[in-house]
């Protein structure tokens, strides 16, 4: 089970002499159950790339394969694909529109042709997973806090039982607690239900903490594809393309330069940094 992109490109205005690429010759595979993060500065091609994955955008060149099948071939059900691969866009709360939270979350499953009862069962289950209190199901989505709105919007996708969940900056504009809550819920979904998560994020700290694999995009291409540890080792390369590493990575490198820590120390979280520093001090 996987989503695969084979040499996909997206060209604005293909008739122009000088071609402008949003995405250029990208090949990758994301398997079910993975937790992948995509990082890259604004305009690097992340949004275009994720829209290929559920067939919202057709690449100018290359193929998009879902479980080995070309999704843009005649006869392939894009509707079925969008049920399996859900995207939550930036500011998903702008997409809430029904009069109550429950109705809002039921919209997706009903649209797939489920009966009222079935849709409601799925919606309730999804809201429960996203820790939305039952007492608020009949409230208007507009009465919720930013973090709760975000959770309801994600529940709307989960209610369709997807295998892949693509989240574009799900925590933008949330405070630190709201951010942690959402990311913890997503992590739980990933390991308890095996839903693959594809997280687009600007927060290197969050990516370091949650993702198992990171794709780094620049100028429409994937320039790195590795574990967070390997990616953040190359923090100087990340800086040249407008990204950075978690702050503790910089602390560890600065300490290594002063000879305080061994030169190959590679930490990504506060906990790891603390351990390494104490190790040196207690010697």
């Amino acid at each position: 089970m996987s989503i695969a992109l084979e040499h996909v490109s997206y060209i604005y205005d293909p008739d122009q002499k000088v071609k402008k690429y949003a995405v250029r010759d990208v090949s990758l595979e994301i398997k079910k159950g993975e937790f992948v993060s995509i990082i890259g500065h604004t305009g690097s091609g992340k949004s275009t790339l994720i829209q290929f994955m559920n067939g919202l955008l057709k690449p100018t060149e290359g193929r998009v394969l879902f479980e080995g099948q070309d999704v843009f071939e005649k006869g392939f059900s894009l509707k079925g694909l969008r049920q399996k691969v859900g995207i939550s866009f930036q500011y998903p709360d702008n997409q809430l529109f029904e009069s109550t939270i429950l109705k809002d979350v039921m919209f997706g499953p009903k649209n797939l042709g489920q009966s009222r009862e079935e849709a409601e069962t799925n919606a309730r289950a999804a809201l429960k997973v996203m820790a939305v209190p039952e007492a608020s199901y009949d409230k208007s989505p507009f009465e919720l806090s930013g973090g709760q709105k975000r959770r309801v919007a994600i529940a709307g996708i989960l209610a369709m039982n997807p295998d892949y969940l693509i989240l574009d900056e799900p925590t933008a504009g949330l405070d630190p607690e709201g951010r942690d809550e959402i990311l913890e819920l997503i992590r739980t979904l990933n390991w308890s239900q095996g839903i693959a998560v594809i997280l687009v994020s600007h927060s290197m700290e969050d990516v370091a903490e949650y993702a198992k694999r990171i794709l780094v995009m620049n100028d429409g291409q994937i320039i790195m594809d590795d574990t967070p540890r390997e990616i953040f080792k190359a923090y100087r390369d990340l800086e040249t393309i407008g990204l950075s590493a978690p702050q503790v990575t910089y602390i560890a490198h600065a300490l290594a330069e002063k000879g305080f820590l061994p030169y190959d120390t590679n930490v990504m979280t506060v906990e790891e940094a603390k351990k390494e520093i104490l190790k040196v001090l207690k010697k």
Binding site: P176, E177, D180, Q247, V248, I251, K274, L281
Partner: peptide
């Protein structure tokens, strides 16, 4: 008050707690 400090501040605090 539900605020999270930068990693460097948190690390310094954690180290102080350990007696550094």
């Amino acid at each position: 008050h539900h605020m999270r400090v930068p990693q460097v501040v948190e690390l310094a605090y954690e180290l102080r707690k350990e007696g550094v």
